[in-house]
Design a protein around this nucleic acid. Structure first.
Length: 588
RNA sequence: GGGGCCGUAGUUCAGCGGUCUAGAAUGCCAGACUGUCGAUCUGGAAGUCGCGGGUUCGAAUCCCGUCGGCCCCGCCA
């Protein structure tokens, strides 16, 4: 070993001891007659000190040091003079009096300052990712991620899950996201696809009697990127045989509780609340509700039906709805704010904003004169009327919901800011099995086409598949979907019904999914599972805004890696071997 | 495919109703300094104002195009 200790562990118990530290020079403080410098490694920072009395030669050599040089320092652990103790660092009570110095590698000045890394240009940070990784934030995120993954594995192995690797070179499937493809040299003109998830393989593992499978698996989807989407990402992928929804949900909850508590030191209480898809959309306007935000939508159509407010009456007569939500502590929302929100709604084409402010004994509202006491009473939010505001809109359900979501966002930014460190998990259940795809003019699987319908809905394949409910469940954390799963179809006949319903021709599904259909006929047990986005989970738990900050070497929004310059061109010979000709159309 | 914001010393940013011989902070270099810890003080170097074109006597600044970054919509079974 080149070192006897790390830079984070020395304290008064080591006084007088001879130690050797290795690390990066963190900051030089040359006072002429005495020089201090900090050595940093991922464990911490230790101050080194040297004056000519220690050694004239070493003292001179230290003057050459610069930030980020890699050094090995040999010296004696000494007590700092009382007034110079630094309580902000772990090792602040001691310092190392340098007896020997080895410069292991000098460094150029860094292309950006570690302390500025938070706001440095993304492309520069990615080009020098290894420098960014030296920052405690990124370094810490990667270690938290590793610890979390370790705890997940530990838990699942204890619970009898078997970690199985599935292929990365696999087959393209027509449903779902765009595939990344890999040419096959041995089969010219044919391509592998990188897996969008190990979905089919894990189902086959169930048919193979593995019973409980998991994998921390890389997945690939060639779609446009977002702060929480990378072209390659990692899922905690699980599948279990002979289970129902509650079994998958329960083991997932226990796993998350264990891994989060162990890796992040947070307290997580289970079971997590559940909400049905329909209720979530109706109350929160979304199937990924953020349970930190307490505003619930209320249908006010019946209350307004018989009032003298003409605009609202007309909306209701045209089979529209009136819907709104109350802000309990609305004191910080000014008339000016309301005006701005109204402007937002109008700009989005949502008609006008209705609002009522409830004070202790009066109300304030553009409709004040048109509202009788009884109606006001009905509209009043439960109990609290100190200074609450009710916002509402009328119109067709979908735009009303969308505009309410917009208002909610605006109000949440004004009157309610979710605290950092609050984690609200929710299960969303009873998803529709299919949804209508406007662009393609056909039904599509909401979850994926291997999701089982509810038993009682099976006859609806014939009578009206759009009303079918699935056995799928999503898990949402603070308004962000972090995972989803379902009980799968284990009957060939139902699987074929689903393909037909979503408009996949028999020829196509036999070609693409024939192996699955066949497998379902060889004793496929009932099974189900879940997949969770590891990157997103770590992002939320670490308090980051982008999954890039949880991934060692992420890509830019255009899918590029400025460090390696991927993607790049390849040798002509390689194209030839793969029988590929590049043909980029010229766009004028 | 579309919308928004951004691109100026190594870095973070100011300048953007045409006059800039482009500033600040920080970093860098040199010197001073025996208790600092974001050390301090003095001095210095440092810019293709993303790239291309246009308007103009004159463009970092106005216009067009283009490349790139970030956020969002579409897309993401």
């Amino acid at each position: 070993m080149l070192r006897s200790h790390t830079c984070g562990e020395l304290n008064k118990t080591h006084l007088g001891g001879k130690v050797t530290l290795c690390g990066w020079v963190n900051s030089m403080r040359d006072h002429g007659g005495v020089t201090f410098f900090d050595i940093r490694d991922r464990y911490g920072i230790t101050q080194a000190v040297c004056s000519p009395e220690d050694s004239a030669d070493i003292f001179e050599e230290i003057k050459q040091l610069r930030s980020e040089w890699v050094v090995r320092v040999e010296g004696i652990v000494s007590e700092r003079p009382a007034e110079t103790v630094n309580l902000r660092i772990q090792t602040g009570e001691i310092e190392v009096r340098v007896q020997n110095l080895k410069i292991m590698n000098p460094s150029l000045p860094l292309p950006f300052e570690l302390s500025e890394a938070g706001k440095t240009d993304e492309i520069l940070k990615l080009k020098y990712r290894y420098i960014d990784i030296r920052s405690p934030r990124l370094n810490g995120n990667l270690r938290k991620r590793a610890l979390f993954s370790h705890k997940v594995r530990e838990f699942l192995i204890k619970e009898n899950f078997t970690d199985v690797e599935t292929p990365v070179l696999t087959k393209s499937t027509p449903e779902g996201a765009r595939d990344f493809i890999v040419p096959s040299r041995l089969n010219p003109g044919n391509f592998y696809a990188l897996p969008q998830s190990p979905q089919l393989f894990k189902q086959l593992l169930m048919i193979g009697g593995i019973d409980r499978y998991f994998q921390i698996a890389k997945c690939f989807r060639d779609e446009d990127l977002r702060a929480d989407r990378q072209p390659e990402f990692t899922q905690i992928d699980m599948e279990m045989s002979f289970v129902e929804e509650d079994d998958v949900i329960a083991v997932t909850e226990r796993m998350l509780k264990y891994a989060i508590e162990e890796a992040f030191g947070l307290e997580i209480s289970i079971p997590f609340p559940r909400i049905t898809y329909d209720e979530s959309v109706s109350k929160y306007g979304s199937d990924t509700p953020d349970m930190r935000i307490p505003f619930e939508y209320r249908d006010l159509t019946d209350i307004f039906k018989n009032t003298g407010i003409k605009i609202l009456k007309e909306i209701i007569e045209k089979r529209g709805i009136i819907k709104g939500f109350a802000v309990a502590e609305g004191g910080s929302i000014s008339l000016k704010d309301i005006e701005n929100i109204d402007k937002l709604v109008r700009e989005a084409g949502g008609g006008g904003l209705g609002w009522i402010r409830f004070r202790t004994d009066e109300i304030q509202s553009p409709f004040k004169k048109l509202l009788d006491a009884e109606t006001i009473n009905k509209l009043k939010p439960d109990g609290k009327s100190g200074n609450s505001i009710l916002f509402f809109l009328g119109g067709k359900p979908k735009p009303v919901r969308e505009n309410l979501n917009m208002i909610k966002k605006a109000v949440a930014g004004k009157a309610f800011k979710p605290q950092a460190g609050i984690f609200k998990f929710t299960w969303v259940t009873d998803f529709p099995l299919f949804e209508y795809d406007e662009a393609e003019k056909r039904l599509q699987a909401v979850h994926h086409p291997f999701t089982s319908p509810r038993e009682e809905d099976i006859p609806k394949f014939k009578t009206g598949p759009s009303g079918m409910k699935s056995r799928a469940y999503d898990i949402v954390l603070n308004g962000i979907e972090i995972g989803g799963g379902s009980i799968r179809i284990n009957s060939r006949q139902i699987q074929e019904e689903v393909f037909k319903t979503i408009g996949v021709e028999k020829k196509v599904y036999l070609e693409r999914f024939g192996f699955l259909l066949e497998a379902l006929e060889y004793g496929a047990p009932p099974h189900g599972g879940i997949a969770m986005g590891l990157d997103r989970l770590i992002m939320l738990l670490a308090g980051e805004d982008s999954i890039r900050d949880t991934i060692a070497f992420p890509k830019t929004q255009k899918g590029a890696c400025p460090l390696t310059n991927a993607p790049g061109s390849v040798e002509e010979s390689l194209l030839k071997e793969n029988k590929i000709r590049v043909d980029i159309p010229k766009t004028e």
